[in-house]
């Protein structure tokens, strides 16, 4: 399959990625190539094969649902681009 300009724009939108117009053509070509690579998988017979999501599937560990962390809001917000009185600031979303 060949990625069109619109295909790239669509996945860029899904990915919340702003692309420069000059980037799009390169990605059309690269993504088409990666997809060609991925197409090889279609030839494999996987009837009745269970998908393997990760190698430790059989042994996922769940910890007790207890509070173990202390409040470190200030430390964590020290690396945020913009905060005010403990809140993360973003452009207005509700008019």
């Amino acid at each position: 399959m060949r990625f069109t300009e619109e295909d790239v724009r669509r996945v860029a939108r899904l990915s919340r990625l702003a692309l420069e117009p000059k980037e799009i053509e390169g990605f059309q070509q690269d993504l088409s190539q990666i997809l060609d690579l991925a197409q090889k998988l279609q030839a494999i017979d996987t009837t009745n094969v269970e998908p393997l999501a990760h190698p430790g599937s059989s042994s996922v560990f769940l910890r007790a649902d207890l509070v173990t962390e202390t409040d470190q809001r200030e430390a964590f917000q020290a690396v945020a681009p913009e905060v005010d009185r403990g809140l993360y600031l973003v452009p207005r979303v509700v008019e």
């Binding site: 998988l41 494999i44 996987t46 094969v49 269970e50 998908p51 393997l52």
Partner: peptide, 15 residues
């Protein structure tokens, strides 16, 4: 289904 699930099935065969 066509790509992601198929890749995970092939992953099982590789393992």
């Amino acid at each position: 289904d066509a790509y992601y699930l198929q890749a995970q099935r092939v992953r099982r065969l590789i393992a």
